[in-house]
Design a protein around this nucleic acid. Structure first.
Lengths: 339, 339
DNA sequence: TTGTATGCGTTATCAC
DNA sequence: GTGATAACGCATACAA
């Protein structure tokens, strides 16, 4: 598709050289004003569209950013993407968006393709496991400019924009302990190989430790990051426990919490009387639930902005300083915790 | 960024020609098996990544699709994008995603850039006004392969995947009339220059006409497509009417309805007793509201799939048959209508 | 102010 | 089975 009219065509139509056309269209000052006019008009009338593919081959720049997110239907990510887009737009970058679908293999593939497309830089929220450090190491070593966001890979020479997951997780868990006196608190945890999965589990444990509560490993379940996996994990927890279920649940994120809530209801238990629950993200749905969800608010849009800014300055000023940018969170106290 | 090792480098390292390397890496059959092996290993060890930019310049194909959506934070669109992605992924296409932010100017710019990037085709849900038919006409005439989805531009020689907006809107309005006997029904309408804005208004009127209800133009308000604009329009409607407010409201989409609900509550009125309300979309939030929203369910994922399939067959089989693909909707009867 | 040669990385084409 | 050459569309460097 696309206009197949090239500089050459315009040049021939006008009886000048392709070079003159190129200069005129790029508004260089060493071209006669009249010629510029003629060229512009002709280009317009012939429906010329500059071929960025050719331009990129010469300049080795594509003015293009690759974005890799794990799950586009998790509302947090579109919001991050909007922040990225806003900044990219202002600096005249286009976005290649790829959705890894929480799949290891797909993320790797996406990154390979993106590099092959010669994007100027990569913004990644990783679904990869820690074992795949080496993959990132090799591409970064190969000169790829990458900034991670939300789910980071650390100590690998790349900047990262995220919240303080550990501290935020500790805070919301402490809220359950201090404000409500819960002592039997379970955790629906994310995959331990993903940074936020691990950090949020740490935070949960920190809180229990700080209040001398014993950590019951049976109450720490792998629950993925999705609604369905949260639902399943909660079912497991309820079936396993019988009447001896926890008083409160800390979910790794809001979708997981929402899945768990469904399970709790199906068991005929009420929130927060029978079981209190808190999440992490502040999904657009969370304030709308029957029993609005207490959660950690993550400023998604801002996270996107910061990540894009960092990457673009990396690209344009070649400022590769590795930074860990932390976006402050806030607790959204609603009623699912018993408040 | 990206590996700057090229075919030539590998060729030199191996003492063969670049052409041989190219053939080996593309697994052509007129290359010695041993040479292939050597080349592959060397490419691997040197961290070679094929340069698609150069490849595209030669082949005039980028294996890239441009996607233009009006609003990425409207959950409907990410879901459509997932459908598109799934199909694109299988056929080995990458997506350029651009978010027009409901802005005329931005959509046009995005499309220009996408064409300039030489995407193989375009999937567009338009924010543009009908006046801008000419813009689309010119790019389609210029050879651009485009498929519209959700918000279509018709009679312009491009295929379109959408729901039957008019009929669906009529159905849900009729539900209010037939099941609940409402006669005073308002419409929070979308911009009339966007297809779905116009069609859904038609459907609303069709329903009133079919039941001999008079159409009160004062009860048809421009409400945009967003939560904020829905909120404002509803405020206007309530202030204008005083006690004489409508019994029911048909909103052009769910975000608008959600904004309107906020306004209704602020006025101290209850749903559905004082005012019933219905939407269109089936946003992920709609079933979770205090009073779950009755709405038209649009199969977003499927819409994305269909649109992508159509576009890819257009590109690959050069099958430019103009089709209007209609995805069936269903009514989601919840309690905001009084049920 | 304008034009010519050259190269970006890859592949098609023709030669050996 | 392998290599040399030209071409894709554009812009840099140099010449006129």
């Amino acid at each position: 598709m696309s206009s197949n009219v090239t500089l050459k065509h315009i040049a021939e139509a006008l009886g000048v050289s392709a070079m003159t056309v190129s200069r005129a269209l790029n508004d260089r000052d060493n071209v006669d004003e009249k010629t510029k006019q003629r060229v512009r008009e002709k280009a317009q009338s012939m429906g010329y569209t500059p071929n960025r593919v050719a331009k990129s081959l010469v300049s080795r720049k594509t003015h293009t950013l690759g974005v890799v997110i794990p799950e586009i239907t998790h509302a947090f990510f579109p919001e991050v993407v909007r922040g990225i887009e806003e900044v990219a737009y202002k600096s005249d970058y286009q976005l290649f968006l790829t959705n890894a679908n929480e799949l290891f293999s797909r993320e790797k593939e996406a990154i390979e393709t993106l590099r092959s497309q010669r994007v100027d830089g990569l913004l990644i929220s990783s679904s990869l496991t820690r074992e795949d450090y080496s993959f990132y190491e090799s591409i970064i070593e190969g000169g790829a400019k990458v900034v991670f966001f939300d789910r980071c890979i650390e100590n690998i020479g790349a900047s990262c924009v995220s919240v303080n997951d550990r501290e935020s997780s500790k805070k919301i868990t402490e809220h359950l302990i201090k404000e409500h006196g819960y002592t039997k608190i379970a955790h629906l945890s994310g995959p331990q190989k993903v940074s936020i999965g691990k950090e949020r589990l740490f935070g949960y444990k920190d809180a229990l430790n700080a209040h001398n509560l014993t950590i019951n490993e049976k109450w720490i379940l792998q629950a993925g990051f999705k609604e369905e996996t949260g639902y399943e994990a909660m079912i497991t927890l309820l079936e396993r426990g019988g009447d001896n279920h926890p008083e409160a649940v800390v979910a790794v994120n809001d979708p997981t919490a929402i899945g768990a809530i469904k399970a709790i209801k199906e068991y005929g238990l009420t929130i927060p009387e029978d079981i209190a629950i808190v999440g992490f993200t502040d999904d657009i749905r969370s304030s709308l639930l029957d029993v609005p969800l207490t959660t950690v608010h993550q400023p998604a849009y801002q996270m996107g902005e910061e990540a894009a800014k960092k990457l673009i300055s990396f690209i344009e000023e070649d400022d590769g300083t590795v930074e860990k940018i932390e976006i402050p969170t806030s607790l959204k106290i609603r009623s699912s915790c018993g408040c």
